[in-house]
Each structure stands twice: as structure tokens, then as C-alpha cells.
Write a protein that binds this DNA or RNA. Sequence first.
DNA 1: AAGAATCTCAACCGCCCCAGA
DNA 2: CTCTGGGGCGGTTGAGATTCT
Length: 275
Amino acid sequence: MGRQPCCDKLGVKKGPWTAEEDKKLINFILTNGQCCWRAVPKLAGLRRCGKSCRLRWTNYLRPDLKRGLLTDAEEQLVIDLHARLGNRWSKIAVRLPGRTDNEIKNHWNTHIKRKLLKMGIDPVTHEPINKQATEDDQTPSSHALDHQTVDNTTNHKSQSRQENDGSSNSEDNFSGSLNENCSINDDESRLLEGICDNDKNLLSCLFDDETPLVDESWKFPSTCGDQDYNNMIGLPSWDDNHQFLMDCQDFGVHDFGFDCVSNIEMNTFEMGDKL
DNA sequence: AAGAATCTCAACCGCCCCAGA
DNA sequence: CTCTGGGGCGGTTGAGATTCT
């Protein structure tokens, strides 16, 4: 039952990407932009699944990615967003320029979760663990009731999975939960204070699905000054990104002879003007 | 120094959504 | 309206790195 695999499994390589494969993928994307991912492996000469290519690109090779651990500010934002959105990592990632959903998810699972537990906060409900236990005894379904009343407009699958991930707190109880979160305890409160202060802006920003995604900034065939836009939102300009690729700080330019980039750069970085 | 335990994070898997035929 | 395929998402895994004993 179910659908066919996303690609022909035969002859499809799995596992860590090699520098050579990275190079091929980068070359292809820089030259052609993002097109049908399913076709990318063939066109790029990769023995990989299209999905794998997309993942590799979005999570690792994208030039606008920030590297390194999340800053304290970013971490706080993640906590706050998670309190509102639950495990909707992609939505959360949209609000953190240069960070991927995968990265945030990993950071959550490895760092933040533990931190919150240490602070006595349930990482799922963002409630103090003691308080939660008491409430559960008294009114087991009080949370569910709170959230049933509000937003039924979003049909995101994570909502249907709420019983699984326990993220009953989503945008539903936005304004309400915020203050509650702010009063979780002194530390948490202080940390979230800044965010709380900007609640209204954040609210409108967070759940306005029409809000342009930050990711838009790195789409290659940019028709406008992406440099200006990136500057505006605090991302490196495309020139910087280009430099990033040239530097290849993370995927060993020298390993795979990135001279080729100089060939494609003229094509690629003029694409913005043409397209 | 070496083996065990733990941590980190890139990558995969399977499911769902949605656009287009 | 139904079906199909592509893209995207969240959960999970496992190899390598790091820390501990």
C-alpha cells in the first residue's frame, strides 16, 4: 500500500554527501536555480534521490545559512515560538533567518528541551511541571478546551498531530498563553520579557501567512535587488553569499577544486538581472 | 591510553498537502 | 470530482565526535 517511493531506489546512493556530490549540486543549483527536485539528480549527474538533494541544499548548502549554535536571542525566540506553534519547525524556522527547520529541531531536542526541564518547565506545554501536574489532576482537559474554541482555519497537519506531540498550545491561545508563559517563573519571565513587549507585532507577523518568507531572499532568479532586501532583513547580500561559497568554509572548496565556480559565477550571478 | 557512555546533527523515512491533469 | 506526483514536513536514526571513567 501507499505510494511509490519518491525515486527509483535502485542505484540511488544514501548516506553522507561527499564533497564531489556537493560540488555537483551547488553547480547545478547555481547554474539553473531550483527547479523540479525530482529531476535534479539526473540533470546534475548525481546518484541521489531528489528529496535528498533538496534536503542537502536547504539544510546545508544554501548560501544564506548561518552556521554555528543558535544565539541566546535565537534560542529564546525558538522557545517562545514553540510555545505558540508547537513542533511546527518549518514555521518557526521562517522567523529565524538563516536557520533551517532541521537545525532548530535538532537544537530543540538536544539543548533547549534539557534546559527547560532543568528549569522545571515542561518543554511540550511550556508550563511549570508542578503546576501542570496539579492542573492535570483537577481538570485534565482544560487545555484542550481552551484551544478548541479558536482557530480552526489552519489545516496544518501538525494540528491533527497535536495529540501526538502534545502541542496543544498553538496560535489558538496566542495572546493568552503569552502572558502565562511570561509568568512561568522569574527567569523565564525575564527572558521572554522582550518578546512579550512586542507581542502585538509578533502576533501579526507570526501568523500572517502572507508574510513574505525570509527564504525568499535567496531565490536565485531574483528580479529585484536581493542585496538590498537581504541587507534590510539582516541577511548577507548575495555577493556575500557568493563569497561564502567561494570561501567554502564548510565544504572544503579546495577539496573539490572550486575553480569551477568562477566559471559559473558569471552565468549565475548575472541571472538575477536576466530573470 | 582505552573503552564506555553520551551527545550532536546530517540524513533518511513515511506521511500529508496540494496543484494539475 | 478523482487521481497522481511532487514538494514539504516532523519524527527518527545512526555515525562520528566528544566527554567521562
